[in-house]
Nucleic acid binder design. Structure first.
Length: 466
RNA sequence: GGCCUGAUGGCGGAGUGGUUACGCAGCGGACUGCAAAUCCGUGCACCCGAGUUCGAUUCUCGGUCAGGCCUCCA
């Protein structure tokens, strides 16, 4: 079973070969914690969580290190803190906690490391110092800037040249820049903003440097996989690689090892044709969505298309995801008396995931297993159940009790009331009292409950989530 | 202006140089007191034009349309 991943740098799918299979490393750009995360923010989290889980399966849970940063130094954080009149840590702690809680509902495992910019400041300052010493960075008007001309391969990841960038410049270039593409590593803080001491003067780090410093500190170069949304390819990842290479491998060039051996970028989620963006205001917050739909259904919706494809976020996507899970949980519910055999994901399921994380194809395999579970012989059903549960577990699906899934979040009071009605209806049917049975069904329908009779009793499901 | 994606049936969404994706919805049947579920069967597709080929939805070129990046953004 060979894992292949689409590498943005190579613009092609490549067989995945880790530097050290005992220590597979992955870094994914994480959140800036100044607000609740929207479902678009969750797409890379869930996509790379799926990859994290696959890598753990392939290389062993203890042999995969996954770091995702938390940006807790940022203008928007400063603004929010000023509005509320509190230190930035109040803001960042609040929204980091909310973020982690929301992502947990979506079934995302916590990364191995979740470094915060404020806790990485020494490494950031150290890295900038090395860049200045080697001539890859220069000081100007209180800033420290990265000299893009110091890195021979600058532009290789995003496929543009320094000339392209001058031609395409839409923004006024700061006069202290030696080259228009040069970017800030360290800048003075404005009055009232948080400030950190450094050999280059008091100030704060630029946008890109924290990732490079964290990668060096938490994982070490080169890392195997670097992930993020495809809007980060340029400038963020381009700049990150340039500074990281110059700091870590003294200038890059042909002979230098890579910064990251595989660059992975997820496609965007859009809302009604537009990109979902906090600045456009057309966002669906995870925190709101999880009140209306099971986290597992949202997760399924996010993984129902390939991670590199654009995904249009609509109510229909969520209801179709619920229907898909109803299908699989239904099969499991009807197979409650079948003892699962084995706990290994199916070959076809793994092959689909190993093909650049083809989750739609992997999900199709879950349906195939569901069908085997419904229609197979005794031994086939036992095997199918084992494979279905193990495959689902690998991707973070199907681990609930099917009855609980179909209860759709109904509370204990409602559940007890429904169970009572069901029991009375079963008794009425046993007595062939069809009038009473139909009357009770009507009561249940009014409660949004669908009854499914079977020879010995009945099961039920909540048609809409509670 | 530069760079980069994508265009598949009613909807979502894989994939392939020549035979079934899959899910949801639809239709027919079995089963059922009724219903639901389930099972069996079934219809519906590859943006346009040219080229390569025995054969293209799949490869090449051109076009159209849509989206993203070039500025904070997943």
């Amino acid at each position: 079973m060979t894992l292949s991943l689409y590498d943005t740098m190579a613009r092609a799918k490549r067989p995945f070969v880790p530097v050290n299979p005992e220590r597979v490393t992955m870094y994914v750009c994480g959140p800036t914690v100044y607000n609740f995360a929207h479902i678009g923010n969750a797409r890379p989290v869930v996509a790379f969580d799926a990859l994290f889980r696959l890598l753990r399966h392939l290389y062993g849970a203890d042999h995969v290190l996954y770091a995702a940063n938390v940006t807790d130094v940022d203008d928007k954080i400063n603004r929010k803190a000023a509005e509320e009149g509190v230190p930035i840590s109040v803001i960042t702690d609040r929204y980091l906690a909310a973020y982690n809680a929301d992502m947990a509902v979506l079934g995302a495992l916590r990364p191995t490391f979740q470094p915060r910019a404020t806790e990485t400041m020494d490494a950031i300052v150290d890295m900038i110092g090395r860049l200045v010493t080697s001539g890859a960075a220069y000081a100007a008007e209180g800033h420290v800037l990265f000299n893009t001309q110091a890195y021979a391969d600058y532009g290789k990841l995003s496929g543009r040249t320094l000339d392209d960038m001058i031609a395409g410049a839409r923004v006024d270039v700061a006069p202290y820049k030696q080259h228009p593409a040069d970017f800030v590593l360290w800048k003075p803080s404005k009055p009232g903003e948080p400030v950190w001491e450094s050999p280059f003067g008091p100030g704060r780090p630029g946008w890109h440097i924290e990732c490079s410093a964290m990668i060096e500190q938490a994982l070490g170069l080169p890392i195997d996989i670097h992930g993020g949304g495809n809007d980060l390819i340029f400038p963020h990842h381009e700049n990150e690689m340039a500074q990281g290479m110059c700091a870590g491998h003294a200038g890059g060039g042909e002979a230098a090892p890579a910064y990251a051996n595989y660059w992975l970028h997820n496609g965007f989620l859009n809302m009604g044709g537009d990109k979902m963006s906090k600045s456009l205001g057309n966002v669906a917050l995870v925190n709101d969505l999880i009140a209306e739909a099971p986290g597992e259904a949202l997760r399924w919706a996010l993984l129902s298309s390939h991670y590199r494809q654009p995904l249009a976020w609509t109510e229909d996507v969520v209801s179709q995801a619920r229907a898909a899970l109803d299908n699989l949980y239904g099969a499991l519910r009807r197979a409650a008396d079948v003892t699962a055999e084995g706990d290994t994901p199916s070959e076809a399921f793994l092959e689909a995931l190993c093909d650049d994380l083809n989750t739609p194809k992997a999900n199709a395999e879950l349906f195939a297993l569901g069908r085997k579970l419904e229609t197979g012989t005794g031994a086939e059903r036992a095997k199918a159940k084992g494979e279905l549960l193990a495959s689902g577990r690998l991707l973070g699906f199907l681990q609930s009790d099917p009855d609980v899934w179909f209860q759709g979040g109904a509370d204990a009071t409602l559940t007890a009331r429904i169970d009572d009605l069901i029991a009375r209806r079963v008794a009425a049917r046993a007595a062939k009292d069809w009038a009473s049975a139909d009357q009770i069904r009507a009561e249940l329908t009014a409660l949004n409950v669908e009854v499914m009779d079977n020879p010995t009793g009945a099961t039920w499901r909540l048609k809409e989530p509670a």
